[in-house]
Protein backbone atom coordinates (compact mmCIF):
# COMPACT_ATOMS: atom_id res chain seq x y z
CA UNK A 1 0.00 0.00 0.00
CA UNK A 2 2.75 2.33 1.08
CA UNK A 3 4.79 1.69 -2.04
CA UNK A 4 1.74 2.07 -4.26
CA UNK A 5 0.98 5.48 -2.75
CA UNK A 6 4.58 6.51 -3.19
CA UNK A 7 4.41 5.32 -6.79
CA UNK A 8 1.34 7.45 -7.49
CA UNK A 9 2.94 10.48 -5.86
CA UNK A 10 6.07 10.05 -7.90
CA UNK A 11 4.17 9.69 -11.14
CA UNK A 12 2.08 12.72 -10.24
CA UNK A 13 5.16 14.80 -9.57
CA UNK A 14 6.61 13.45 -12.78
CA UNK A 15 3.52 14.41 -14.74
CA UNK A 16 3.68 17.87 -13.26
CA UNK A 17 7.35 18.32 -13.96
CA UNK A 18 6.90 17.08 -17.51
CA UNK A 19 4.15 19.61 -18.14
CA UNK A 20 6.37 22.25 -16.58
CA UNK A 21 9.26 21.30 -18.80
CA UNK A 22 7.05 21.19 -21.88
CA UNK A 23 5.62 24.58 -20.94
CA UNK A 24 9.15 25.94 -20.83
CA UNK A 25 9.86 24.38 -24.19
CA UNK A 26 6.77 26.07 -25.56
CA UNK A 27 7.99 29.42 -24.27
CA UNK A 28 11.34 29.13 -25.94
CA UNK A 29 9.72 28.16 -29.21
CA UNK A 30 8.30 31.63 -29.53
CA UNK A 31 10.83 32.64 -32.12
CA UNK A 32 10.43 36.38 -31.64
CA UNK A 33 11.36 36.08 -27.96
CA UNK A 34 14.35 33.97 -28.83
CA UNK A 35 15.36 36.47 -31.47
CA UNK A 36 15.00 39.38 -29.08
CA UNK A 37 17.20 37.59 -26.55
CA UNK A 38 19.71 36.84 -29.26
CA UNK A 39 19.92 40.48 -30.38
CA UNK A 40 20.00 41.72 -26.79
CA UNK A 41 23.05 39.55 -26.13
CA UNK A 42 24.84 41.24 -29.05
CA UNK A 43 24.46 44.98 -28.42
CA UNK A 44 25.56 47.35 -31.15
CA UNK A 45 26.84 50.91 -30.84
CA UNK A 46 24.20 53.39 -31.79
CA UNK A 47 25.83 56.59 -33.03
CA UNK A 48 23.81 59.74 -32.67
CA UNK A 49 23.13 61.37 -36.00
CA UNK A 50 21.72 64.74 -37.04
CA UNK A 51 22.48 66.63 -33.83
CA UNK A 52 22.00 69.70 -36.00
CA UNK A 53 20.51 70.03 -39.47
CA UNK A 54 23.59 71.41 -41.12
CA UNK A 55 27.25 72.27 -40.62
CA UNK A 56 26.47 75.81 -39.39
CA UNK A 57 24.35 76.37 -36.33
CA UNK A 58 23.56 79.87 -37.58
CA UNK A 59 26.71 81.83 -38.35
CA UNK A 60 29.37 79.71 -36.74
CA UNK A 61 30.04 76.00 -37.05
CA UNK A 62 28.06 73.16 -35.50
CA UNK A 63 29.57 69.75 -34.77
CA UNK A 64 28.04 68.41 -38.00
CA UNK A 65 30.26 67.57 -40.96
CA UNK A 66 29.29 66.93 -44.54
CA UNK A 67 29.76 63.24 -45.25
CA UNK A 68 32.74 61.92 -47.17
CA UNK A 69 32.51 62.66 -50.88
CA UNK A 70 29.81 65.27 -50.46
CA UNK A 71 30.13 68.87 -51.64
CA UNK A 72 28.02 71.57 -50.04
CA UNK A 73 27.61 74.94 -51.74
CA UNK A 74 26.62 77.62 -49.26
CA UNK A 75 25.37 81.08 -49.98
CA UNK A 76 24.99 83.26 -46.90
CA UNK A 77 23.32 86.61 -47.15
CA UNK A 78 22.82 89.33 -44.53
CA UNK A 79 20.76 92.38 -45.33
CA UNK A 80 21.42 95.75 -43.74
CA UNK A 81 20.19 96.82 -40.34
CA UNK A 82 16.44 96.84 -39.78
CA UNK A 83 16.62 100.24 -38.01
CA UNK A 84 17.67 101.85 -41.31
CA UNK A 85 13.96 102.55 -41.69
CA UNK A 86 11.91 102.87 -44.83
CA UNK A 87 14.64 104.85 -46.64
CA UNK A 88 16.83 101.70 -46.59
CA UNK A 89 13.72 99.51 -46.88
CA UNK A 90 14.56 98.12 -43.44
CA UNK A 91 17.99 97.01 -44.51
CA UNK A 92 17.04 95.30 -47.77
CA UNK A 93 19.05 97.87 -49.79
CA UNK A 94 22.33 96.62 -48.35
CA UNK A 95 23.84 93.22 -48.26
CA UNK A 96 26.79 91.28 -46.93
CA UNK A 97 27.40 87.99 -48.70
CA UNK A 98 29.62 84.96 -48.25
CA UNK A 99 29.83 82.37 -50.99
CA UNK A 100 31.54 79.15 -50.00
CA UNK A 101 32.12 75.55 -50.89
CA UNK A 102 32.57 72.79 -48.31
CA UNK A 103 33.76 69.29 -49.06
CA UNK A 104 33.92 66.11 -47.00
CA UNK A 105 37.22 64.31 -47.54
CA UNK A 106 36.05 61.55 -45.22
CA UNK A 107 33.08 61.23 -42.90
CA UNK A 108 35.19 62.77 -40.12
CA UNK A 109 37.22 65.41 -41.98
CA UNK A 110 35.84 68.33 -43.94
CA UNK A 111 37.41 71.38 -45.53
CA UNK A 112 35.94 74.53 -46.98
CA UNK A 113 36.76 77.80 -48.67
CA UNK A 114 34.79 80.99 -49.02
CA UNK A 115 34.81 84.64 -49.79
CA UNK A 116 32.96 87.32 -47.87
CA UNK A 117 32.00 90.69 -49.31
CA UNK A 118 32.44 92.18 -45.82
CA UNK A 119 36.12 93.21 -45.48
CA UNK A 120 36.66 91.49 -48.88
CA UNK A 121 37.86 88.48 -46.98
CA UNK A 122 38.93 85.03 -48.20
CA UNK A 123 38.77 82.12 -45.80
CA UNK A 124 39.62 78.46 -45.54
CA UNK A 125 38.93 76.01 -42.77
CA UNK A 126 39.06 72.41 -41.71
CA UNK A 127 36.91 70.60 -39.19
CA UNK A 128 37.66 67.22 -37.64
CA UNK A 129 35.30 64.97 -35.75
CA UNK A 130 37.08 63.79 -32.63
CA UNK A 131 34.32 62.00 -30.71
CA UNK A 132 30.83 60.90 -31.60
CA UNK A 133 27.97 60.72 -29.15
CA UNK A 134 26.79 57.13 -28.91
CA UNK A 135 24.85 54.66 -26.82
CA UNK A 136 24.63 50.88 -26.68
CA UNK A 137 27.83 48.89 -26.79
CA UNK A 138 29.96 52.03 -26.58
CA UNK A 139 28.65 54.93 -24.53
CA UNK A 140 29.77 58.47 -25.22
CA UNK A 141 27.80 61.41 -23.82
CA UNK A 142 29.17 64.09 -26.16
CA UNK A 143 30.18 64.73 -29.73
CA UNK A 144 33.38 66.75 -30.00
CA UNK A 145 34.91 68.36 -33.08
CA UNK A 146 37.93 70.54 -33.65
CA UNK A 147 37.77 73.53 -35.97
CA UNK A 148 40.57 75.65 -37.42
CA UNK A 149 40.07 78.54 -39.83
CA UNK A 150 42.35 81.04 -41.53
CA UNK A 151 41.25 84.39 -42.97
CA UNK A 152 42.82 86.88 -45.32
CA UNK A 153 41.23 90.25 -45.89
CA UNK A 154 42.02 92.18 -49.06
CA UNK A 155 40.78 95.65 -48.18
CA UNK A 156 42.92 98.59 -49.26
CA UNK A 157 45.20 99.68 -46.43
CA UNK A 158 43.55 102.31 -44.28
CA UNK A 159 46.91 104.00 -43.78
CA UNK A 160 48.93 103.31 -46.95
CA UNK A 161 51.75 105.60 -45.86
CA UNK A 162 52.95 103.50 -42.97
CA UNK A 163 54.76 100.14 -43.17
CA UNK A 164 52.06 97.61 -44.00
CA UNK A 165 52.79 93.91 -43.88
CA UNK A 166 50.91 91.25 -45.77
CA UNK A 167 50.76 89.12 -42.62
CA UNK A 168 48.70 91.86 -40.98
CA UNK A 169 45.79 90.76 -43.14
CA UNK A 170 45.68 87.34 -41.57
CA UNK A 171 43.38 86.09 -38.77
CA UNK A 172 42.98 82.63 -37.27
CA UNK A 173 40.13 80.92 -35.45
CA UNK A 174 40.41 77.77 -33.34
CA UNK A 175 37.38 76.15 -31.79
CA UNK A 176 36.53 73.10 -29.77
CA UNK A 177 32.94 72.20 -30.52
CA UNK A 178 31.15 70.08 -27.94
CA UNK A 179 27.54 69.08 -28.41
CA UNK A 180 24.97 66.73 -27.05
CA UNK A 181 21.67 65.69 -28.58
CA UNK A 182 19.52 65.46 -25.47
CA UNK A 183 16.41 64.28 -27.25
CA UNK A 184 15.09 63.89 -30.77
CA UNK A 185 14.19 67.59 -30.76
CA UNK A 186 16.71 69.30 -28.51
CA UNK A 187 20.47 69.69 -28.98
CA UNK A 188 22.95 71.94 -27.18
CA UNK A 189 26.46 73.03 -28.14
CA UNK A 190 29.32 74.73 -26.31
CA UNK A 191 32.16 76.22 -28.33
CA UNK A 192 35.27 77.55 -26.57
CA UNK A 193 36.95 79.77 -29.13
CA UNK A 194 40.28 81.49 -29.73
CA UNK A 195 40.58 84.09 -32.46
CA UNK A 196 44.03 85.41 -33.21
CA UNK A 197 44.40 88.63 -35.16
CA UNK A 198 47.84 89.55 -36.41
CA UNK A 199 46.79 93.18 -36.51
CA UNK A 200 44.24 94.77 -34.17
CA UNK A 201 42.75 98.27 -34.44
CA UNK A 202 44.10 99.71 -31.17
CA UNK A 203 47.44 99.29 -29.45
CA UNK A 204 45.51 98.48 -26.27
CA UNK A 205 43.60 95.64 -27.96
CA UNK A 206 44.85 92.09 -27.34
CA UNK A 207 45.78 89.92 -30.32
CA UNK A 208 44.37 86.76 -28.80
CA UNK A 209 40.63 86.98 -28.32
CA UNK A 210 38.79 84.46 -26.19
CA UNK A 211 35.12 83.61 -26.22
CA UNK A 212 32.69 80.81 -25.47
CA UNK A 213 29.81 80.08 -27.77
CA UNK A 214 26.58 78.50 -26.71
CA UNK A 215 24.05 77.28 -29.21
CA UNK A 216 20.85 75.29 -29.14
CA UNK A 217 18.28 73.95 -31.51
CA UNK A 218 14.74 72.84 -30.89
CA UNK A 219 12.86 71.00 -33.59
CA UNK A 220 9.32 72.19 -34.12
CA UNK A 221 8.43 69.78 -36.90
CA UNK A 222 10.35 66.94 -38.55
CA UNK A 223 11.78 69.34 -41.11
CA UNK A 224 11.93 72.60 -39.20
CA UNK A 225 13.81 73.82 -36.17
CA UNK A 226 14.48 77.00 -34.19
CA UNK A 227 18.12 77.78 -33.41
CA UNK A 228 19.81 80.24 -31.07
CA UNK A 229 23.51 81.09 -31.02
CA UNK A 230 25.36 83.39 -28.64
CA UNK A 231 29.07 84.03 -28.10
CA UNK A 232 30.26 85.37 -24.78
CA UNK A 233 33.48 87.34 -25.20
CA UNK A 234 35.76 87.09 -22.18
CA UNK A 235 36.43 90.60 -20.75
CA UNK A 236 40.04 91.61 -21.28
CA UNK A 237 40.30 89.30 -24.29
CA UNK A 238 38.02 91.18 -26.66
CA UNK A 239 38.34 94.13 -28.99
CA UNK A 240 37.10 97.47 -27.77
CA UNK A 241 33.73 98.63 -29.07
CA UNK A 242 32.62 95.13 -30.01
CA UNK A 243 29.60 93.38 -28.51
CA UNK A 244 28.65 89.73 -28.04
CA UNK A 245 26.93 88.36 -31.14
CA UNK A 246 23.45 86.90 -30.74
CA UNK A 247 21.55 85.20 -33.55
CA UNK A 248 18.19 83.53 -33.81
CA UNK A 249 17.24 81.40 -36.78
CA UNK A 250 14.86 78.94 -38.32
CA UNK A 251 16.07 75.93 -40.32
CA UNK A 252 13.81 74.62 -43.04
CA UNK A 253 14.82 71.50 -44.87
CA UNK A 254 13.48 70.41 -48.23
CA UNK A 255 15.16 67.44 -49.89
CA UNK A 256 18.76 68.35 -50.71
CA UNK A 257 18.41 71.97 -49.56
CA UNK A 258 18.52 73.55 -46.13
CA UNK A 259 17.26 77.12 -45.79
CA UNK A 260 18.22 79.05 -42.70
CA UNK A 261 16.38 82.29 -42.02
CA UNK A 262 18.07 84.33 -39.35
CA UNK A 263 18.11 87.52 -37.33
CA UNK A 264 21.51 88.63 -36.06
CA UNK A 265 23.36 91.72 -34.84
CA UNK A 266 26.41 90.79 -36.92
CA UNK A 267 27.24 92.10 -40.37
CA UNK A 268 30.14 89.71 -40.87
CA UNK A 269 29.52 86.06 -41.63
CA UNK A 270 32.91 84.37 -41.32
CA UNK A 271 33.80 83.20 -37.80
CA UNK A 272 36.45 85.82 -37.03
CA UNK A 273 34.20 88.70 -38.13
CA UNK A 274 31.14 87.32 -36.42
CA UNK A 275 32.56 86.25 -33.09
CA UNK A 276 35.00 89.07 -32.42
CA UNK A 277 33.91 91.87 -34.74
CA UNK A 278 30.23 92.45 -34.08
CA UNK A 279 29.31 96.03 -33.29
CA UNK A 280 25.54 96.13 -33.76
CA UNK A 281 23.31 96.16 -30.70
CA UNK A 282 19.99 94.30 -30.51
CA UNK A 283 18.68 96.92 -28.08
CA UNK A 284 19.22 99.68 -30.67
CA UNK A 285 17.64 97.71 -33.49
CA UNK A 286 20.92 96.98 -35.26
CA UNK A 287 19.41 93.73 -36.43
CA UNK A 288 20.14 92.11 -39.76
CA UNK A 289 17.71 89.80 -41.47
CA UNK A 290 19.47 87.12 -43.49
CA UNK A 291 19.49 83.63 -44.85
CA UNK A 292 21.83 80.77 -45.63
CA UNK A 293 21.08 78.46 -48.51
CA UNK A 294 22.85 75.14 -48.70
CA UNK A 295 22.77 72.77 -51.64
CA UNK A 296 24.38 69.39 -51.33
CA UNK A 297 25.98 67.48 -54.22
CA UNK A 298 27.09 63.89 -53.86
CA UNK A 299 30.38 63.74 -55.75
CA UNK A 300 31.42 60.24 -54.81
CA UNK A 301 28.74 57.63 -54.33
CA UNK A 302 30.25 55.31 -51.82
CA UNK A 303 28.63 52.55 -49.90
CA UNK A 304 29.28 53.84 -46.45
CA UNK A 305 29.40 51.52 -43.52
CA UNK A 306 29.09 52.45 -39.88
CA UNK A 307 31.78 50.85 -37.79
CA UNK A 308 30.36 48.32 -35.39
Amino acid sequence: MQTKLAGITISLILCLSTTLVSAQVKDTTDLMDMLDKETASHPVTNYTSATFKTTRLINAHSIENVAGGVMDVKISHRFGEINGGFYELFGLDNASIRIGVDYGITDWLMIGIGRSSYEKQYDGFMKVKLLRQSSGKKNMPLSISGFAGMYYNTLKWSEPDRDNYNTSRINYTFQLLMARKFSEGFSLQLSPTLVHKNLVPLTTDPNDLLSVGIGARQKITKRMSINVEYYYQVPGFKLENTVDPLSIGIDIETGGHVFQFIFTNSTGIAENQYITGTTGKWSKGDIHFGFNISRVFTMKKTKRKETK
Binding site: M32, L35, D36, T39, V44, N46, S49, V66, A67, G68, G69, V70, D107, G256, V296, T298, K301, T302, K303, R304, K305, E306
Partner: peptide, 14 residues
Protein backbone atom coordinates in the same frame (compact mmCIF):
# COMPACT_ATOMS: atom_id res chain seq x y z
CA UNK B 1 12.97 38.62 -38.46
CA UNK B 2 14.19 41.72 -36.71
CA UNK B 3 16.51 44.55 -37.74
CA UNK B 4 17.69 47.97 -36.68
CA UNK B 5 16.34 50.63 -39.00
CA UNK B 6 19.51 52.71 -38.47
CA UNK B 7 21.63 49.96 -40.02
CA UNK B 8 20.29 50.65 -43.51
CA UNK B 9 22.97 52.15 -45.71
CA UNK B 10 22.48 54.29 -48.78
CA UNK B 11 24.64 55.53 -51.62
CA UNK B 12 23.92 59.11 -50.60
CA UNK B 13 24.67 60.16 -47.04
CA UNK B 14 21.92 62.74 -46.97
Amino acid sequence: FTLLVKSFTFKRAL
